[in-house]
Design a protein around this nucleic acid. Structure first.
Lengths: 93, 93
DNA sequence: TAATTATATCTACATTTACTTATAAAATAC
DNA sequence: GTATTTTATAAGTAAATGTAGATATAATTA
């Protein structure tokens, strides 16, 4: 089994292994939100949310798009589904 | 979204977020192994493997069955697939 | 019985992680 | 231009995590 493939799996799983970060991700599966909207939804500071978003972005789980001085985040569902498919294949071969 | 459901997801993701633990899990998807067989496959101590197996077991990712003084471990694929299905539903509703 | 084998648990420690406060950077508004 | 707003980054810190060595537990063998 490929090393970088292993790293990709652990990176994605690690990103979803923190409850706050998972909540952020699930919020973003429902709609696009800017950072402050997420801060208001959860009880976490703005820097904490920004750091979680960076980790989600590096794992390929969310998109980020700058508009004005807002940063719009949304879930990268296609990527997640592809990952799930590949992981499922691992199990059944 | 249910609190215990969230905890279940984070527990499973956390279990798969460590490279050594992921390797152990993937080994167990291929065949049933006792602890020492896993120790020999990877370059980790026996206590480390035992602790990883405990975490995988608590996440519902592996079965454990005692035979003689061996403990036979194998992947709980059904559980993983069910989890993947539920998670996928979360994305698409 | 005692010795051996396999696994689990305990303890200690170095590393990683999630967080807060403070600050910087980038865009907008005045 | 300066002030304001939004987000990102830096620094410090307490808590969690992964590990190895030592030890305990449970089953087997002699």
């Amino acid at each position: 089994m490929n090393r970088s493939k292993l790293e990709n799996i652990t990176k994605i799983c690690k990103a979803l292994s923190d409850p706050t970060r998972l909540k952020i991700f699930l919020l973003l599966t429902e709609k696009t939100l800017c950072v402050n909207a997420i801060v208001r939804s959860l009880e976490v500071s703005q820097p904490a949310v920004s750091q979680h978003l960076r980790i989600l972005r590096e794992a390929g789980l969310v998109y980020a798009e700058k508009r004005g001085y807002w940063m719009h985040y949304s879930a990268n569902k296609e990527n997640v589904e592809q990952f799930m498919g590949e992981f499922n294949n691992l199990l059944n071969k």
